[in-house]
Simulated assay, not measured.
Amino acid sequence: MGRGDGKPSRDEVRDGYEQVLIERYADDTYGLETPVYPEGFDIDAYYECVVDGIYDNMTTESLEIIASGDSELPLPHDQLSILVDYDTGCYQGIW
């Protein structure tokens, strides 16, 4: 892990979140290898926005779950709400 306070680094959270999205879109529902974004969408700006938003607003435990990249690990409802808010806001803000 990346920091002395026990939190995973921002890069670890970003990489894990990207993996979670890839796993979610690659399931039987979508059958895609990677998420599909509109042409011209700045994916790096999106991930940076999400990580900047959640990093100081979610618990260390929740950040560790995201950094793990395992889409099957559940987040507590209040923590999931934070993630969804930033995911949606960043997507709409970037696009």
Rank of each mutant, 00 (worst) to 15 (best):
Glu61Arg: 14
Met1Gly: 11
Tyr46Gln: 02
Val51Glu: 06
Tyr37Gly: 01
Asp15Ile: 03
Ser81Val: 13
Gln19Phe: 03
Asp85Arg: 15
Tyr46Trp: 12
Ile94Gly: 01
Asp11Phe: 07
Asp42Phe: 01
Leu83Lys: 07
Thr34Gly: 01
Arg24Met: 09
Val13Arg: 04
Gly31Trp: 08
Tyr91Arg: 12
Thr34Lys: 12
Tyr47Cys: 05
Glu33Gln: 13
Glu64Tyr: 00
His77Pro: 03
Pro74His: 07
Asp52Val: 04
Gly69Thr: 08
Asp85Ile: 10
Glu23Val: 00
Ile66Ser: 12
Ile22Glu: 10
Val20Leu: 15
Arg3Asp: 05
Asp42Ser: 00
Leu73Cys: 00
Trp95Ser: 12
Glu64Gln: 12
Asp70Asn: 14
Val13Phe: 01
Gly6Glu: 02
Asp87Asn: 14
Glu39Phe: 09
Gly16Phe: 03
Arg3Tyr: 12
Tyr30Thr: 05
Glu12Gln: 15
Trp95Leu: 08
Arg24Cys: 05
Glu61Met: 02
Leu73Pro: 00
Gly16Glu: 10
Gly93Ile: 06
Trp95Val: 13
Tyr25Cys: 13
Asp56Gln: 13
Gly6Pro: 01
Val13Leu: 03
Lys7Met: 06
Glu33Thr: 11
Ile54Cys: 07
Gln92Ser: 14
Glu48Ala: 12
Met58Asn: 07
Pro35Leu: 11
Val50Trp: 08
Asn57Asp: 08
Gly6Asn: 02
Thr59Ala: 11
Leu73Gly: 00
Arg14Gln: 14
Ile54Gly: 07
Asp42Glu: 01
Val20His: 08
Glu23Tyr: 05
